[in-house]
């Protein structure tokens, strides 16, 4: 890992795999951005979320290690099924790992929790009698 990299190749692979798994499980698009915010971290997260391919169907996780903040932005479609309070609770799952300096473990925890939250609800009722 060079001095300017935040993650090792193995860590990148783990995060990429977690994103793929989360997308397969939930049917939503997941994005993770790790870097400094331009001004307020929430507004930076909104800016990043606006720029992705399908914002309404996307969940963006913005981690600012400098400000020690994690922002989760859920698109309009995602928001219909995923409650903001549950997203906040999912965000808390990264706290222990982040405080120990392990961004990868924290991110994996958040991605997995959000994937579970965004998973389509399976109805017990069917059209067939």
């Amino acid at each position: 890992m060079s001095a300017g990299d935040a993650f090792t190749p193995i860590e990148r692979h783990e995060i990429d795999k977690a994103i793929r798994d989360a997308e397969r499980l939930s049917g939503r698009d997941f994005y993770v951005h790790v870097g400094r915010s331009t001004g307020d971290s929430r507004r930076t997260a909104w800016s990043l979320h606006r720029a992705v391919a399908r914002p309404a169907n996307s969940i963006l996780i913005h981690v600012d290690p400098t400000a020690r903040t994690l922002e989760v932005v859920t698109g309009a479609d995602v928001r219909e099924t995923v409650d903001d309070r549950h997203v906040a609770l999912a965000g808390l799952s990264m706290q222990t790992a982040f405080e120990a300096g392990d961004l990868t473990r924290g991110l994996l925890a958040v991605i997995q929790q959000l994937a579970q939250l965004a998973r389509p609800v399976q109805s017990l009722h069917t059209d067939t009698p």
Partner: peptide, 27 residues
């Protein structure tokens, strides 16, 4: 490399490519 805090100097990283390319360019 410090993992967080004011000494953070790593380059920003995107995960979720290739669809995040547009966002990276936008930033």
């Amino acid at each position: 490399q410090p993992r967080s805090g004011s000494n953070w100097k790593a380059e920003p990283e995107w995960f979720g490519a290739p669809r995040a390319v547009g966002a990276r360019e936008a930033m």
